[in-house]
Nucleic acid binder design. Structure first.
Length: 361
DNA sequence: CTAGGGTTAG
């Protein structure tokens, strides 16, 4: 830009730093921030907040804390956005204790935490498996004159989900209704997922249909959660029904959902059905990805159809490029099934897989 | 120009 005699201002730098965030280039974001004085520009709190976000994106919490310190030495005053971004950096970096310290620090620095600051702190607890703390913070918000919004509740529901407390997740959902804070697609999808994890597939499916009655369009996430619930209860017929329902409601079936459906067929021992689904993906204008193949391969492996699994394994390289480590591991397990039949091919393939994985024996 | 809430295999 200087060559064109257009001098970048703070906002240009802010935009550039923000692009670094999107491209996960925190180092370049910090370099840009450090370069500002060279062009006689003084970085402001917005530039710093953008740089903290760039660190947050990749979980680089130390970088975010360093920038908070830099703000202090420059006598710049961080605002609620700055702190929320730093709390989020701690969340992504799995540092819930530090996230909570920052939340407590805010009032001491005369910055009033808002819904987003609390939401980020709740998420930090969620990632750290501290669901009780997450609920505690949610409960604390009204006392601090901040009314929880959908985001706060959804973060808390997520904490319950991660902590395996599906009943609590469900009760938060009904609390939202009673508070006239209508649960949205995220609230429902997360609760459906937590019901599914404990085998409550009937409840999961009931919640999915409740969404429609509440004028909410079930989306990819909702269906994926419901398919997962059916997978765990080995209800492959219902999985197929759900896929059909998705198509009928005009939702594009995502690769997440179709791959989960292939996996569900495999869990239920229906390996041929899994293969059929894999083969039918193109007809639904879906390109099978490596996960589709891995799910299908695993289905075959579980049914001890090692030859079918190895055929798929061979296809992956041709269709999708080299298999990933998990692809090799799945193939390896399939070979082990083949060893029971003392198959020459299984032994050879097994040795090849071991070599690629860098394992001996 | 900056901040929170959700996705598949083993």
């Amino acid at each position: 830009m200087p060559e064109d005699r257009v001098v970048p201002d703070k906002i240009c730098y802010g935009a550039a730093i923000s692009s670094c965030e999107k491209g996960r280039q925190w180092q370049i974001a910090l370099d840009l921030l450090a370069d500002m004085p060279k062009t006689k520009l003084t970085a402001d709190e917005v530039n710093f907040s953008a740089a903290i976000s760039a660190c947050a994106k990749v979980g680089h919490w130390q970088g975010a804390l360093g920038l908070l310190d830099d703000l202090d030495s420059l006598l710049l005053k961080p605002n609620e956005v700055t702190y929320s971004a730093a709390i989020s950096a701690c969340e992504k970096g799995s540092q819930w204790q530090i996230a909570l310290c920052l939340l407590r620090l805010m009032p001491m620095r005369k910055v009033i935490p808002n819904q987003i600051s609390y939401g980020s702190a709740i998420s930090a607890c969620s990632r750290g498996g501290m669901w009780e703390l997450a609920l505690g913070i949610l409960g604390l918000m009204p006392e601090c004159s901040v009314e929880p919004d959908e985001g706060s509740f959804n973060a808390a529901i997520n904490a319950c989900d991660k902590g395996g407390r599906w009943q609590l997740a469900l009760s938060l959902l009904s609390r939202m209704v009673s508070l006239a804070l209508p649960p949205d697609e995220i609230s429902f999808s997360t609760v459906i997922s937590s019901c599914g994890k404990v085998g409550q597939w009937q409840l999961a499916v009931a919640l999915l249909s409740l969404m429609a009655r509440r004028q909410l369009q079930a989306n990819e996430y909702s269906y994926l959660a419901a398919i997962g619930a059916c997978d765990r209860s080995r209800n492959w017929q219902l999985v197929l029904d759900l896929l059909r329902l998705m198509l009928e409601s005009g939702l594009p079936v995502s690769s997440f959902c179709s791959n989960a459906a292939i996996a569900a067929c495999g869990s239920a021992g229906r390996w041929q059905l899994a293969l059929r689904l894999l083969r039918r993906l193109p007809a639904a204008s879906l390109e099978p990805d490596e996960l589709s193949y891995n799910a299908a391969m695993l289905s075959c492996q579980r049914a001890l159809r090692w030859r079918a699994a190895l055929e798929l394994f061979g296809e992956v390289a041709v269709v999708r490029g080299l298999p990933s480590e998990i692809g090799y591991r799945t193939a390896l397990m399939a070979c082990d099934a083949g060893l029971q039949f003392a198959s020459e091919q299984a032994i050879l393939e097994r040795t090849a897989c071991l070599a690629v994985l860098g394992l001996q024996k």
